[in-house]
């Protein structure tokens, strides 16, 4: 018994010494079943029943449409369940879990202040991802982030983007930008700097 406790002490002290790095810990990776996500995406968006999503079908899922050039590994211009699953795996293989996002929102060419921008994880990904939100400032730019203050930013993934501006309890933007949103974004390292520092949503009131 005493031997055991001594060993325990020894191991604890070594762990203490080894674990004393002062670099912040990485955020936890969102839990997702890639294969299930691939199947779910096909189920939700494959309207012609060929088991693949072409560009017309992908218009209903703008995040995947954005992923198409990078995810379409067999080059047929369509996404299969396997390709979507591989893409979901690839998001995390790059060494990035979270990225900064500061999208610019304009309405009829003018920066839109006070609009709420919500990044809602696409439904086919399941429950593991976090919703992120932000409000645009006078320059039309919103800092979009989840609620965890330790890790501000957006997890890599596929998002539906909903932009709304409520004035006196009334939604002032068309439904195609919020409740029936046609906007989306795929947050992934290989989209380059163009993605998150130059992410722009140009809305029209008509």
């Amino acid at each position: 018994m005493r031997l055991l406790s001594l060993h325990f002490l020894l191991i604890v002290s070594i762990l203490f010494a080894a674990g004393c790095s002062r670099r912040p810990r990485a955020p936890r990776r969102p839990g997702v079943n890639a294969a299930a996500a691939g199947r779910a995406a096909i189920e939700m968006y494959d309207t012609d029943g060929d088991g693949k999503l072409d560009t017309t079908e992908l218009e209903r899922c703008p995040a995947l449409l954005m992923a198409l050039p990078l995810a379409d590994t067999d080059g047929d211009g369509k996404l299969s369940a396997d390709e979507i699953a591989a893409r979901v795996e690839a998001w995390f293989a790059f060494g990035t879990i979270m990225m900064d996002a500061a999208p610019l929102v304009t309405l009829d060419g003018q920066p839109l202040e006070g609009a709420e921008v919500v990044f809602e994880p696409e439904e086919f990904l399941g429950e593991g991802f976090t919703e992120c939100r932000g409000v645009t400032d006078a320059s039309g730019q919103a800092r979009v982030s989840g609620s965890d203050a330790t890790y501000p930013g957006v997890y890599v993934g596929a998002y539906r983007v909903r932009i709304s501006k409520v004035v006196d309890g009334q939604e002032t933007l068309p439904a195609r930008y919020n409740t029936e949103s046609e906007l989306g974004v795929e947050v992934a390292e290989d989209h380059g700097t163009e993605l998150l520092d130059h992410l722009e949503f140009h809305l029209r009131s008509q």
Binding site: R25, R29, F94, T96, I97, M99, Y151, G153
Partner: peptide
């Protein structure tokens, strides 16, 4: 610097 965070 935080692992996994803010690439680019």
């Amino acid at each position: 610097d935080t692992p996994g965070v803010d690439t680019m």
